[in-house]
Design a protein around this nucleic acid. Structure first.
Length: 292
DNA sequence: AAGGGTTTCAACCGCCTCTCA
DNA sequence: GTGAGAGGCGGTTGAAACCCT
């Protein structure tokens, strides 16, 4: 279906003049926000409706907060971005007075670079050797390692070690309390004979950007951009029963933490558990290419 | 002071979704 | 059910401001 351009020829483009701003402000004060196309026409602005809407929402609206993004706001943006991805409008709803455009610009000019710089310094060389004495507990021939090759999570839990100790109902079973001064490890999952440290960035502001999971000497993949990959491939070609259990535990713990974070951020369930980037991490786990 | 490079951010573009006839 | 119009959104652009030599 072909679309006619929203802006007819002959309309003004580019930066808004003070006079245009004043006309738009006065018109909306008097008539309120209605159909943007008709606002442009009735107000006598030679602008397309979209341009009027953008100007009002991003600049002229009286509840816009001016000034620098505070440290608290920055922290919230980072947390929300790790949870929601580039859903700027959704993120902006959680920062009163800030617009999606402003947050997007702030991310692109400040936070994205920080994040990228940090990620580029991450070690990617991983242990390649299999530990002595590591044996499969049970063979599951229908699920070979080369097909049971990844657990993919869209998002990571946003938790501090202190919070883990306080909140995890599974603490005694799968989460090991951490040193108070450590942000390197979010939690450890006990696979029975192997501990799996779930590692995040050492700086709190990067928590949630990427997660690094190692399963002792066996799990040998640490990588991620927007997503993280937990590779649970065993070198012996079989899936260990305790590994399968580990997948379930990771799924449980991630889902638990995401729910808690979503609750903390007062996100509606459809904002984090629906389609898209806000989806619960357990829905992104795959075994053999199939949602686990 | 000049000018060249870099950064910032307002505005635009194009696609998607929703609504309504 | 279908198509068109409108709003909403994320990605991108480019002019202006800023910085550095």
């Amino acid at each position: 279906m072909g679309r006619s351009p929203c802006c007819a020829k002959g309309v003004n483009r580019g930066a808004w003049s003070l006079q245009e701003d004043q006309i738009l402000i006065n018109f909306i004060k008097t008539h309120g926000q209605g159909s943007w196309r008709s606002v442009a026409q009735k107000a006598g602005l030679k602008r397309c409706g979209k341009s009027c809407r953008l100007r009002w929402l991003n600049y002229l609206r009286p509840d816009i907060k001016r000034g620098e993004i505070s440290a608290d706001e920055e922290d919230l943006i980072i947390r929300l971005h790790s949870l929601l991805g580039n859903r700027w409008a959704l993120i902006a709803k959680r920062l009163p007075g800030r617009t999606d455009n402003e947050i997007k610009n702030y991310w692109n000019t400040n936070l994205a670079k920080k994040s990228h710089d940090y990620k580029s310094k991450l070690p990617i060389k991983l242990p390649q050797t299999k530990p002595e004495g590591e044996k499969p507990i049970e063979k599951l021939p229908e699920v070979k390692a080369q097909t049971y090759n990844s657990v993919k999570c869209s998002k990571t839990p946003l938790i501090s070690p202190q919070e883990i100790q306080l909140t995890s109902v599974l603490q005694n079973e799968i989460l090991v309390p951490l040193d108070d001064d450590s942000f390197d490890v979010l939690m450890e999952i006990d696979f029975g004979d192997v501990f799996v440290p779930v590692v995040d960035f050492p700086h709190a502001q990067y928590c949630g950007q990427m997660m690094n999971v190692r399963k002792s000497e066996i799990v040998n993949h640490v990588k991620g951009d927007d997503n993280c990959i937990l590779s649970l491939q065993s070198e012996d070609g079989f899936v260990h029963e305790n590994e399968m259990k580990g997948v379930q535990l990771i799924q449980q713990s991630l889902d638990l933490e995401l729910k808690r974070v979503a609750s903390f951020l007062e996100l509606e369930e459809d904002e984090w558990n629906g389609d898209g980037l806000g989806k619960s991490p357990c829905h992104f786990m795959h075994v053999n290419g199939v949602p686990y």
